[in-house]
C-alpha cells in the first residue's frame, strides 16, 4: 500500500512538472488552446456550411416539385 502511494506521489509530481512548463504555463497553454480551438471551430463551421448548403438546395428542389 505504501508503495502504491509513493508511486502515485511520483506520478502526480511528474504531471505537475509537465503542466507547469517550467513556469511558462500561463503562455504555453493559452497558445495551444487558441490554436486547437481555432482548428475545431473552423472544422465545425465547415461541416455546418456544407449541411446548410445541402438543406437549402433540397428546399429549392422541393419548391420545383420533384422530391429527391
Amino acid at each position: 500500500m505504501q508503495e502504491f502511494w509513493n508511486q502515485m506521489h511520483e506520478f502526480l509530481k511528474l504531471m505537475q512538472e509537465f503542466f507547469s512548463m517550467s513556469g511558462y504555463a500561463p503562455f504555453v497553454w493559452p497558445a495551444y488552446a487558441i490554436a486547437l480551438g481555432a482548428l475545431l471551430w473552423y472544422a465545425w463551421q465547415a461541416r455546418r456550411q456544407l449541411d446548410n448548403a445541402r438543406e437549402e438546395a433540397r428546399r429549392k428542389v422541393a419548391m420545383r416539385g420533384d422530391n429527391p
Binding site: A43, A46, Q49, L50, N52, R54, E56, A57, K60
Partner: peptide, 16 residues
Amino acid sequence: IMLVRARAEVLRRDRG
C-alpha cells in the same frame, strides 16, 4: 477544410 468549404460553395452557387 478547403474541399468541404468548396463543396458547400459550389452547392450554394448552383442550387436549383
